[in-house]
Nucleic acid binder design. Structure first.
Lengths: 228, 228
DNA sequence: GTCTATACAGTGATAGAC
DNA sequence: GTCTATCACTGTATAGAC
């Protein structure tokens, strides 16, 4: 029964190759050769190279975000979580992939790090869509930890957190960075959390702006940032 | 006199197009059409598309890093600079480009944001090379602000800083991020500095590891991170 | 429905005439 | 220095076999 898992074979081969060479650096012919299928099979099952990327991304991003939400649920069920705990719920699922050096985790981690830095439109759409699920939940959770911040400030600081996370993921996969690789051990996550918690606890900048009643209007916009 | 400024015209056209469409999304034929030169002229003057990217990058990155060093020099001549001042010397030159909305600054800023996120080898090499110039200087300066940190910890935290900076630059150029665009005003830099300074002042994680004499060996490696 | 073979327009790169 | 012609390769599209 040929083709019963053709789709999966293509996705798996693509994930590995995207992780190694990036999206633009991987040709569809390389993917089909590695997967042992015909070139046109990609266009039959996915239609376009962008759609293939999307399929690779979405196969794993769902469980990862579910893990984040599950951790946050558990924390909030126990009471008011600390800032460090919320940070760990947000960062730990994706960061601990680093340690899974032998399994699929590394491939996915490399893929994510690569894909994060592709300037193509699909990636931005994908990330934005997937992050809407967890974004508002974490904005709320972070906001509760630091009630003097406006929602806009919370979103801004969440952007900073995502920047650190994203950069750390990318650097993991870059060769020639001995210092950064040294820092890729299991303690890096704790260092990140300590740094980011201290940063997040910085006093609100709105304090000395002006003494108006409502200097920070509530913005209804979701965070819509790149995360995974 | 044809060709007297062919090289410059190519670089300028490429900068604009790379800023708008990214590197992979820009074909050499588009560049040559916009510059009004022949396709082969690129390969005559630069040899390869990667080399063209390099030329575009290096035309502006030198002055930008010089500005950073100049600010740091001035600070250190006046005495021991504060952490906030060092952060501003590092971040301000590239971040203030956002405000130059009409001039060449915007194009360059967009280009840098785009190029930062291209996963190609040239970019990594370029950034590493250019950052060696300023990297060690700022590692030293940051280390002086927080003497209890080992050099490895300083490098790690500088990576966090670069992550926030890099992500902020990329987001500037992404559409559909209203909250982030709101935050792209002139006060964003101050918010970043406040956040990062507080994070950088977090106590060293080496404190509670073990009571050995030298728990953090001095690593001679330069930071070698992506920055610009 | 699933897969294969083949063809097409566009890409970066190169060689050689002027 | 500049141009034309051409190369191998890319993502994509389609016709047709099972």
């Amino acid at each position: 029964m040929p083709g019963i898992d053709t789709k999966d074979r293509i996705v798996s081969a693509a994930e590995r190759l995207f992780a190694e060479r990036g999206f633009a650096g991987t040709s569809l012919r390389t993917v089909t050769t590695k997967a042992g299928v015909n070139l046109a099979a990609i266009h039959y099952h996915f239609g376009t190279k962008d759609a293939l990327l999307r399929a690779v991304f979405e196969r794993r991003i769902g469980p990862l975000n579910a893990q984040r939400l599950e951790r946050l649920d558990r924390l909030e069920a126990e009471g008011s979580p600390t800032l460090e705990a919320v940070l760990e719920a947000f960062l730990s699922p994706i960061m601990t992939l680093k340690r899974d050096l032998e399994g699929e985790g590394l491939v996915w981690s490399r893929f994510i790090g690569r894909v994060y830095s592709e300037p193509i439109e699909v990636v931005e759409t994908m990330i934005r869509e997937q992050f809407e699920v967890v974004g508002q939940r974490f904005v709320t959770a972070f906001g509760r930890c630091q009630p003097d911040l406006s929602e806009l400030e919370v979103v801004e600081r969440l952007q900073f957190i995502i920047g650190v996370m994203s950069h750390s993921l990318i650097d993991l996969n870059r060769i020639g960075l001995p210092a950064a690789q040294q820092g890729a051990g299991p303690e890096t996550l704790q260092h990140m959390i300590a740094f980011l918690a201290a940063g997040f606890r910085a006093p609100s900048a709105a304090k000395n702006s002006h003494s108006d009643a409502n200097p920070q209007p509530n913005l209804p916009q979701p965070p819509q940032a790149r995360a995974s």
